[in-house]
Design a binder for these strands. Structure first.
Length: 892
RNA sequence: GGGCGGUUAGCUCAGUUGGUUAGAGCAUCUGACUUACAUUCAGAGGGUCAGGGGUUCGAGUCCUCUACCGCCCACCA
């Protein structure tokens, strides 16, 4: 490519599409076992097949892609395992909505036909998010893309179920679930959002058996559940009810005898301090019932209609029944009072019907035995959370873990691998359930071939928790599977949002330890939530979505990625607005233009980027020293997951050091021989070369594009930047050059400052006289000062007797600057300004002197700090004296 | 009720183990077509680091209390 072929405008969209297709085609993302290389593995948190890429994904996947690209360039065999999750309920709902448009319910189609519809939908739309991830630049090994309902993966799920069942860790039991009586389906907790609802609190008297006119009064929001009461509970510490515990009360209306029990669950402050216990219709009462071995009486069926056990109210709707009961209680004089009561009630997220806690038979996993090793793995540091604070959250949850209800009353998912032996009428026989990986031929207990499979499917997370190893075709015993697992497992880093710490992360740790005997990953990086600029979570229903693809379309994936990472502090939520992406867009533009300038300006004689040292100019040594430091800082920041810090270091280096000072300084023509010019061009290309490598994990596209141009020009061997080595030990550390350049920069700034003060136009080029005890540094860089401060000439003196007439003075520690002017300078104004400046310095001097004269400081502070403070004081004093002299000169 | 996070410039936020005169981006103001870039360049203004108390030679940073905002968990029948 010749120099003139570099377009003046960077077209992110075209460049990104072209490069991505090339990368993928060449297989640069692929990672196969390679014993010579150390593996680095990340499993992508599988996005839902229903998903479209939102900002949360963009953030999450950018972090992962940074880690993957960074480690790939560190010479590791970096594998990013992609895939999607079948997301049981969410996906089923999508398809149910779709067929609802044709007026169909899933029951109309039947299980098999409905599932065909879901698969059809999955084939058609399930890969949307994968395509979007590619737009973002995600460098996954797409050949390995897995789906949680792939045949092999499903085998792993069944294997795990059978394994846990045989180990005695899976059991069937009664459990209260969220049930929507209208949709006739179970709902997950997050699908039954609590809404503040105005209700009533009914105070009801329960007569005490064998004692006339003696009652205990309970308060309830749902009087209809009185029919299912099996106890009344009070707090054991409640003095008011001490004598009541152990007595029996007569349940109003139906007259059943139930005990009064004591349980800590009861809050003595609320209501009357006595609670009716309905184990079959309230999750808390259910737990109380378990503790006290109470009967569970179901008085309401799955449609919200009262059952046989509701006695006279049988057949009534639940709310009708509530009215009827309240009337009857009134009639019997048992209703004490009714209070208005605001409380939180679960509502169906689809039809807004009030959720009914419903007792039903479900499958469970016993969690305590699985949790123990998972607690240990975190406690002993084999797994580390970043930020650290999540460790406590994790341990707290794990130590109080409840058994996991894994059955779901939906169709889309892994069907529970349990079969029941049934007779000709379809009724269960006495044989125990048959738990097998594959459909059994006949009942192993009686030989009956009449078997039916459990209707329910498994919770989505029951497949997700196997992701770090099931994606490698575990538990297949094939040789390559075992070798792959041995090589890539455990994975290195898991990047995810804290929302799924319990759902997914904790369970993966348990599954990894249980089935692989090893942790599934060593680091967990938990990032914040993406919010809009008013702090609300981004969601479709709020209409506050910023679509990452729109940003990519407008500004490019690099701009999106860099902006996101740059503004997101470790583990903090990020508040987004469209304008925040301009940061990355502008930076992309800056990188492009600087590169274009460097590349188009290269002399034909420049054949490589290795300068012939020693470098003569201060600015050369300076920028190379900064580059050296940058590499160290970026490396450290990324390895500590401080992604924003690394991004900001890169930004600051490139823009405010390299472009603002170094590139500008290389434009100077005066006083440079050809050797110096050529060397500077090499330094420019060398810094650019290393910079694009450093930024590649953040901005994969523009860095590759520039690298390709550099490669064409210099003939580098690396085919693609993404497989080149990450810079290490580049540049040259030179502290004295850094210090000297700081002096030069502050001289230039001082002069620019003085110019702005008096409104000097950029086209005007005055002369400057610099006075300093140490003229060496200034003399070396006289051309830099002249050029960058836009001066006609710079004179440097060690000492002067009298300040130049018609001049404007400025002072830095160790240096006086006189801007020589023909025009008039307002002397009074000048004196005022300088005096003010001098006063500020005086304050600082006083502060420093007080500090240094404090004996405690001298004796207790580290030597280096004392020394630094002392020399700082010297500088301040020098500036103070010089200002004094300048002011005196003006007055004279 | 329990736990966690936040409170730093007009806005959005950085600030590693306590150590120069607390930084950036945006916004505002002034000036500039200086031949890579106006998605730019030069410059300016703007902060008692939420408040009280403590530890320390030294606190935005550590401890403690308070206030407000937000999140998570458990939720009062």
């Amino acid at each position: 490519m010749s120099n003139t072929d570099i377009p003046s405008q960077y077209r992110a969209r075209d460049v990104e599409d072209r490069l991505y297709q090339w990368w993928e085609k060449e297989g640069f993302f692929n990672a196969d076992r390679d014993e010579k290389k150390e593996p680095y593995t990340i499993v992508i948190p599988p996005p839902n097949v229903t998903g479209i890429l939102h900002m949360g994904h963009a953030l999450n996947d950018t972090y992962q892609d940074i880690l993957i690209r960074y480690n790939r360039m560190k010479g590791k065999n970096a594998l990013w395992m992609p895939g999607t999750d079948h997301a049981g309920i969410a996906t089923q709902n999508v398809v149910e909505r779709k067929i609802a448009k044709q007026g169909l319910r899933r029951q109309d189609l039947g299980r098999e036909k409905f599932l065909e519809e879901v698969w059809k939908w999955k084939e058609e739309y399930g890969s949307t998010i994968i395509r979007q991830l590619k737009r973002l630049g995600a460098s996954c090994d797409w050949r390995r893309t897995r789906f949680t309902m792939d045949e092999e993966y499903s085998k792993a799920v069944r294997y795990v179920f059978v394994h846990l069942y045989k180990k005695g860790l899976i059991y069937q039991g009664n459990y209260i679930i969220n049930w929507c009586p209208r949709c006739h389906t179970a709902l997950a907790d997050e699908e039954a959002p609590k809404k503040e609802t105005q209700g009533r609190l009914y105070y009801v008297k329960y007569p005490i058996e064998g004692e006339d006119d003696s009652y205990i009064t309970v308060a309830t929001t749902r009087p209809e559940t009185i029919l299912g009461d099996t106890a009344v509970a009070v707090n054991p510490k409640d003095e008011r009810y001490k004598g009541f515990v152990g007595k029996t009360v007569i349940l109003p209306i139906i007259g059943r005898r139930i005990p009064i029990i004591a349980d800590d669950y009861v809050d003595p402050e609320f209501g009357t301090g006595a609670v009716k216990i309905t184990p079959a219709h309230d999750p808390n009462d259910f737990l109380v019932g378990k503790r006290h071995e109470l009967e569970e009486i179901v008085v309401m069926d799955s449609t919200g209609v009262m059952t046989e056990d509701a006695g006279p109210y049988k057949g009534m709707d639940r709310f009708e029944c509530r009215k009827a009961i309240v009337d009857d209680l009134k009639k019997q004089g048992l209703l004490v009072k009714i209070e208005e009561h605001l409380h939180n009630v679960g509502h169906c997220y689809r039809c807004d019907t009030v959720i009914e806690p419903y007792l039903s038979r479900q499958w469970f996993v016993k969690m305590k035995p699985l949790a123990e090793p998972a607690i240990k793995a975190v406690k002993d540091g084999r797994i580390r959370f970043t930020p650290r604070r999540w460790t406590k959250v994790y341990l707290n949850w794990m130590e109080n873990i409840q058994d996991w209800c894994i059955s779901r009353q939906i169709w889309w998912g892994h069907r529970i691998p349990v079969w029941y032996c049934v007779n000709e009428q379809g009724e269960r026989t006495d044989c125990p359930p048959i738990v097998e990986m594959e459909t059994p031929e006949a009942c192993p207990h009686c030989g009956n071939k009449n078997l039916v499979q459990d209707e329910d499917v498994l919770d989505t997370w029951f497949s997700s928790w196997l992701w770090p190893f099931a994606t490698f075709y575990w538990p297949s015993q094939e040789d390559w599977v075992k070798k792959d697992l041995e090589y890539f497992y455990p994975t290195n880093t898991l990047v995810t949002a804290p929302e799924i710490l319990f759902f997914w992360v904790a369970r993966m740790i348990m599954a990894g330890l249980e089935f692989m005997g090893e942790i599934p990953f060593s680091d967990v990086y938990l990032h914040g939530t993406v919010r809009d600029d008013t702090g609300r979570k981004m969601s479709k229903s709020l209409g506050n979505i910023i679509d990452p693809l729109e940003i990519i379309e407008e500004m490019g994936a690099d701009a999106l990625r860099f902006s996101l990472i740059s503004i997101t502090a470790v583990g903090q939520d990020v508040y987004l607005s469209r304008s925040k992406f301009e940061l990355g867009r502008n930076f992309t533009n800056k990188i492009w233009n600087a590169s274009r300038y460097i590349l188009t300006g290269l002399n034909e004689e420049v054949e490589d980027i290795v300068w012939e040292g020693p470098l003569l100019l201060l600015e050369d040594r300076w920028i190379l020293s900064l580059l050296h430091r940058l590499v160290k800082d970026v490396d450290r920041a990324i390895s500590q997951f401080r992604f924003n810090e690394a991004a900001n270091r890169l930004y600051d280096f490139f823009w405010h050091n390299f472009c603002d000072w170094y590139i500008e300084a290389t434009k100077i023509k005066d006083g440079k021989n050809k050797e110096v010019v050529l060397n500077q061009q090499k330094v420019l290309a060398y810094v650019l070369y290393n910079f694009v490598h450093l930024i590649h994990p953040y901005m994969p596209f523009i860095s590759e594009e520039i690298y390709q141009i550099l490669k064409d020009r210099f003939g580098f061997e690396g085919e693609t930047i993404m497989l080149n080595l990450y810079p290490q030990e580049v540049g040259i550390e030179d502290i004295s050059a850094e210090e000297a350049m700081e002096t030069i920069k502050s001289v230039v700034s001082l002069i620019r400052n003085m110019r702005a003060d008096i409104g000097l136009k950029p086209s005007e080029r005055p002369e400057v006289l610099l006075v300093s005890g140490n003229v060496q540094v200034l003399k070396e860089s006289v051309e830099v000062i002249k050029f960058l401060a836009r001066l006609s000439d710079v004179r440097i003196e060690q000492k002067i007797d009298k300040r130049p007439e018609k001049s404007l003075a400025g002072v830095l520690p160790g240096i006086e600057a006189y801007l020589l002017l023909e025009g008039l300078v307002n002397i009074d104004e000048e004196i005022k300004k300088l005096k003010k400046k001098r006063q500020e310095i005086e304050k600082l001097i006083n502060k420093k002197e007080a500090l240094l004269s404090n004996e405690n400081f001298a004796s207790k502070a580290p030597k280096a700090v004392v020394e630094a403070e002392t020399s700082k004081l010297e500088e301040l004093k020098d500036a103070y004296d010089r200002l004094g002299a300048v002011i005196d000169g003006l007055k004279a």
